[in-house]
């Protein structure tokens, strides 16, 4: 079973995303900020990370840059899932190593479509 790390400071968003991703067949882990997500990744690299941008402690972009510089950190597909929708922000995320990008609000169809585009289904 593939693993997905959900990184979002909103418990509600994590709950909604967990339900969608479990239906897609993923085993889920959760983190509420970038630092907590790094700890998860250092313990066991997930197959995919669904990543919010704006979070306390360490935001999504900082997390992604740190992750990609770590040994094995280039492996997980990282799908941003954020309210940030300015093209410059999207380019910044892609340059930092994001695989795909979802602009909130999202639904199950969008997550399934984006995971497919990221080569995950």
């Amino acid at each position: 079973m593939k693993t997905c790390l959900l990184v979002d400071d909103s418990r509600v968003i994590r709950k909604v995303a967990r339900r969608i991703l479990e239906d897609l067949g993923y085993e889920i882990a959760e983190a509420s900020d970038g630092l907590e997500a790094l700890a998860w990744c250092r313990a066991a690299m997930p197959d995919v990370i669904l990543l919010d941008w704006n979070m306390p402690v360490m935001n999504g972009l900082e997390f992604l840059r740190t992750l990609r510089a770590e040994p094995g950190g280039e492996e997980p597909r990282v799908v941003f899932c954020t309210v940030e929708s300015h093209p410059d922000r999207i380019r910044e995320a892609l340059a930092a190593g994001a695989t795909e990008y979802i602009m909130k609000p999202f639904d199950g169809d969008i997550i399934a479509a984006k995971f497919e585009m990221a080569g995950l289904t």
């Binding site: 999207i90 892609l94 795909e100 990008y101 602009m103 969008i110 479509a113 984006k114 585009m117």
Partner: peptide, 13 residues
Amino acid sequence: FEVQRGLPIRQLV
């Protein structure tokens, strides 16, 4: 919503 159904993000930007 329409651009997120099927369109990879690199093609969007």
